[in-house]
Design a binder for these strands. Structure first.
Length: 935
RNA sequence: GCCCGGAUGGUGGAAUUGGUAGACACGACGGACUUAAAAUCCGUUGGCCCAAACGGGCCGUGCGGGUUCAAGUCCCGCUCCGGGUACCA
């Protein structure tokens, strides 16, 4: 066999393993390059062809950089804590660790088949005790720190307690929990303990009191807060795990519930997470997703006095104080604490009914339901801060309690929701924009010109906004305010298969367990206890430590994945999560490749933890991933058969419309080039055993097809193992890269794989004849052969540098076609060629390298360089355009000066023919490119 | 609604700074080899038109305008598709 890929691939994989080829070490004689894949969750289904796409791309880069002389770090591991293994455990009693182990070995064997250059000696698993002890350690650091906003970095809680003991909390500027702030922004730490407290007060607090107070400052803290509770999963979920009111995993309904949970104060980092985006090379769409998720908006906090309620003021957040003259009413969230205080007797019943109604509507119903405008008048009025006019105060569920102050000033002329609300309830809509028709809706363009707005009349909103801000601040009517949509993240899960917290409770006070490593205990069942405690409460002996109750919650899936890229740098360190020496050596991830679905989860949390560890001076960089590429999803191509209704007769695709047919998915393994294997189909399922077929003119049964998501139920899953078996790993690697731009979603179509396989065979035939005889010789290469090689080196190198994986394959194909044409069997050409194809087809490249007598392994072969002189052609052929249309080709010696090209082309008889006697008005010669004659 | 992408032959896609649109493949069609099939090799393949042929012309990158010697690429205005997100004040 001329290209025995099975033998070749097995041979070189064994060699790489035996030699430890891909084990990487810190070294200072070469620049480093860290290329990382998002590590997989090892699911029971194994890999389909979509999974390796990103892995192949990163492997190509890892190999390319290595040949270019970089010291490459290219590790892989498993995100092995998580829900599916636990759900499976609940159903079968199988310990999640066992399932996980099985899934990991399946993944590993599938990955190994593809010839990746991973350094497996650095493998990490988030569920391994050697790994999660450091996840726990980072948690304890988060617990032990808060955020000093003056220094704009994390600072130890001990600094805070020292300060409290000396001078209380005067002039303190630390990030503090929202639940600690009153409506007016005052601190409130419990009964009789508000605002500024003295050292004496602090020192007089009980241990429990101190612990509770400090929770308001810790980066990891316990709080009673509204959380997303998923009854079906029996656990809380973070905001990013809830999509449209349903759980991301499983699609179960999620409700709001008040619970005491561990939280992460990611909000302290909101601005730095936003600013950091400017310094990283990520796609605009992911950056935009993060910006929106953080949702920074700047505006003003305005105060409205409530008529007849001395000293009771409603704070309102507005990004548009320039439209203040148009404010005609206030709207509070139904849950706003003042609602019942201000509601008049006559409105009380109606208001309470509305509150009940709102509370009963789940988030999901609100989302799915009608967008009808609802609301209710409280009977109270507030005074307009500029005019003193009375403005009615309403409540409505379009105002959210959790954002801003939970109250808005309605400017119906300038906000569409306010406009609709005013329309629905007949409230006044003061006109404040010149030339705007209020019948049509609100004016939201900031270029609109204001009227009826006092000093701001005639200004555009753009101009009036800063004026309004300055005026209102000066007058003491408003203060500048920045709001974020970002909320602190829930960090507790009521599940078994996760990191246990290194925390126990002593007299209700949470204490870190230091010294002992808290291991995940064995339990008799993976369900909550009868008292509703999480599964860990079942672990007798474990559930009480040091005489006190353990924390029964576990950490969420994103805990382990927030820092795994650091552990690869120093995977076996027993004294630290990663030594500073190692993290300084490897630094940021230079290239991160993975799906775009983690925009608001993993990618935000790992940035947060990185910044935190940077603040603690434990690592030297505060963004984890310098450059990221998000690969697109590979879609499946489903095949269909058409059954005449009520029969077992199947008609071919061409005739499907001449009968009443049902379209049924058919397993794509039974279909080759849209033609169905009839016997295979009959044998596929018992109900098709007696199937009859109506064939087309060629006597074939043609199937229909459609591109859709790959899934088992659609029988369109392409398994990489089968393709490796049929074509070899090198073919699969090249083909996945050849499909199209990495970032684009694209359909999987196995038909094209033949072409790529053919390319590799053709490549092989340059080196070895049909009978296996070596064709490589030491003759002098022809100029054509040299030009073909150097052209290919140039194109491949440039395309790899701009990460254009797909065009590299085309370039290699063109190169091989041209070299074949030039009968290029000279060692001087074929040896660099083997080095050139090595990143894409590493197994074959080793074989060909060896055949050429290359020294060592091709993995370490220096990247070939192109020689510009070899590319120079003696003649340049210009396309000659007349008025922009190409009319003929014109060749001149390549060193002809543009002016000489011009005069030469004008003397050409074809030019005269085109001009038909006219004289050219203008001639443009773009050297080496094109000639355009205007005339 | 808002934000981010995208639209190029029968299909996947290429065209990197405005410079020959359709590279490279797939598929299809025709041919060679073969008892046959597979494999391999050769040729044709955006549409329309003129020509017996050699050749030649016109149109063409979602739609409509514009800038330019020259536009898939830049500008203005739309349409459709994909993804994200949502009563965020």
């Amino acid at each position: 066999m001329e290209y025995d890929f099975k033998a070749i691939e097995a041979k070189w994989r064994a060699r790489w393993t035996a030699d430890g080829t891909y084990v990487s070490q810190e070294r200072n004689d070469k620049p480093k390059y860290y290329v990382l894949d998002m590590f997989p969750y090892p699911s029971g289904a194994g890999l389909h062809v979509g999974h390796p796409l990103g892995y192949i791309a990163s492997d190509v880069v890892a190999r390319y950089k290595r040949q270019c002389g970089f010291n490459v770090l290219h590790p892989q591991g498993y995100d092995s804590f998580g829900l599916p293994a636990e759900q499976y455990a609940i159903q079968t009693g199988q310990h999640p660790a066992v399932t996980t182990e099985q899934n990991i070995s399946r993944y590993r064997s599938q990955l190994d088949l593809l010839g990746f250059s991973y350094d497996w000696s650095r493998e990490v698993r988030t569920s391994s005790p050697n790994y999660y002890r450091w996840t726990q350690w980072i948690f304890s650091q988060l617990f032990g720190h808060g955020y000093d906003q003056s220094a704009d970095q994390a600072a130890p809680i001990s600094a805070l307690t020292d300060r409290f003991a000396e001078r209380g909390n005067a002039d303190l500027n630390w990030a503090v929990g929202e639940e600690t702030l009153t409506e007016a922004g005052e601190l409130h730490f419990g009964e009789g303990f508000e605002g500024v407290f003295s050292a004496q007060q602090w020192n007089g607090l009980s241990e429990k009191g101190k612990s509770d107070l400090l929770m308001a400052y810790r980066m990891a803290y316990l709080a009673d807060s509204e959380v997303n509770w998923c009854p079906a999963l029996g656990t809380v979920l973070a905001n990013d795990e809830v999509i449209g009111g349903l759980s991301e995993r499983g699609g179960h309904p999620v409700v709001r519930k008040k619970m005491r949970q561990w939280m992460m104060r990611i909000t302290a980092y909101a601005d730095r997470l936003l600013d950091g985006l400017e310094r990283i090379d990520w796609s605009d769409s992911i950056k935009e997703v993060q910006r929106n998720w953080i949702g920074r908006s700047t505006g003003a906090q305005l105060m409205f006095n409530i008529e007849g309620h001395q000293g009771l003021n409603i704070e309102v957040f507005s990004t548009r104080p320039d439209t203040l003259h148009g404010a005609s009413f206030l709207v509070l969230a139904p849950e706003h604490p003042f609602v019942l205080d201000i509601t008049t007797e006559s409105q009380r019943a109606e208001v309470q009914a509305y509150q009940v109604e709102t509370a009963a509507r789940s988030e999901r119903e609100r989302m799915a339901g009608d967008r009808g405008v609802t609301g209710c008048f409280t009977g109270a009025h507030a005074a307009h801060p500029l005019t003193g006019d009375l403005m009615p105060i309403w409540i409505a569920d379009y105002v959210l309690a959790g954002y801003g102050t939970g109250a808005v000033m309605a400017v119906p002329a300038g906000d569409q929701r306010d406009w609709e609300f005013a329309r629905a309830f007949g409230l006044s809509i003061p006109p404040i924009f010149e030339g705007h028709n209020l019948e049509e809706g609100a004016e939201t363009d900031k270029n609109a010109v204001l009227c009826n707005s006092g000093d701001w009349n005639g200004m555009t909103c753009h101009k009036a906004l800063p004026e309004a801000m300055a005026f209102l601040s000066e007058a003491g009517l408003a203060k500048p305010k920045v709001n974020h949509r970002l909320r602190d993240a829930v960090f507790s899960r009521q599940r078994y298969w996760g990191e246990p917290f290194p925390v126990c409770y002593v007299d209700q006070i949470p204490q870190l367990i230091e010294g002992d490593h808290v291991l995940l205990p064995e339990v008799d069942a993976y369900l909550p206890t009868e008292e509703g405690e999480p599964p860990l409460a079942r672990a007798e002996k474990w559930n009480v430590q040091q005489g006190d109750r353990m924390e029964f919650n576990t950490m969420p899936g994103w805990a382990g994945s927030s820092w795994y890229f650091l552990r690869y740098m120093d995977p076996h360190n027993e004294n630290a999560f990663c030594s500073r020496e190692k993290s300084d050596h490897w630094g940021q991830v230079d290239l991160y490749i993975g799906g775009a679905e983690h925009g608001t989860g993993h990618l935000l949390y790992s940035r947060f933890w990185t910044k935190f560890l940077f603040d603690l001076d434990l690592i030297g960089f505060d963004e984890p991933f310098a450059k990221m590429i998000n690969q697109g999803m590979i879609l499946g191509r489903s095949s269909f058969v058409y059954r005449i209704e009520g029969t077992q007769t199947f008609v071919t695709f061409e005739q499907r419309k001449s009968h009443r047919t049902q379209r049924l998915h058919v397993d794509i393994s039974l279909v080759q080039n849209d033609i169905l294997d009839l016997d295979g189909f009959r044998a596929w399922r018992p109900e098709f055993a007696n199937a009859e077929f109506t064939l087309n003119e060629k006597g074939e049964y043609r199937c229909g097809s459609e591109v859709e998501k790959m899934s088992k139920s659609k029988f369109n899953v392409e398994n990489p193992d089968d393709l490796v078996e049929r074509y070899g790993a090198d073919t699969l690697r090249c083909y996945e890269m050849f499909l199209g731009p990495l970032e684009q979603a694209k359909p999987w179509d196995t038909q094209g794989i033949n072409g790529v396989h053919g390319f590799l065979r053709k490549l092989s035939r340059l080196y070895r004849g049909a009978d296996g005889e070596t064709l490589v010789h030491d003759g002098q290469p022809s100029p054509e052969g040299e030009r073909a090689l150097h052209k290919t080196i140039k194109k491949v190198t440039e395309d790899l540098d701009r990460l254009s994986w797909n065009t590299v394959v085309s370039a290699m194909m063109i190169g091989v076609n041209e070299l074949t044409e030039a009968k290029a069997h000279q060692r001087a050409l074929l040896q660099p060629l083997a080095a050139l194809v090595a990143p894409y087809a590493p197994h074959m490249a080793e074989e060909l390298w060896e055949l050429c007598g290359g020294s060592g392994l091709v993995v370490d072969a220096p990247w070939p360089k192109w020689d510009a002189e070899k590319l120079v052609e003696s003649e340049t052929t210009y396309p000659v355009q007349f008025n922009g249309k190409v009319r003929f080709q014109f060749s001149v010696p390549s060193d002809t000066a543009p002016a000489d090209v011009e005069s030469a082309v004008l003397q050409d008889e074809r030019t005269a023919k085109q001009l038909q006697g006219r004289s050219p008005k203008k001639i443009i010669v773009v050297p080496g490119r094109i000639i355009n004659i205007v005339g």
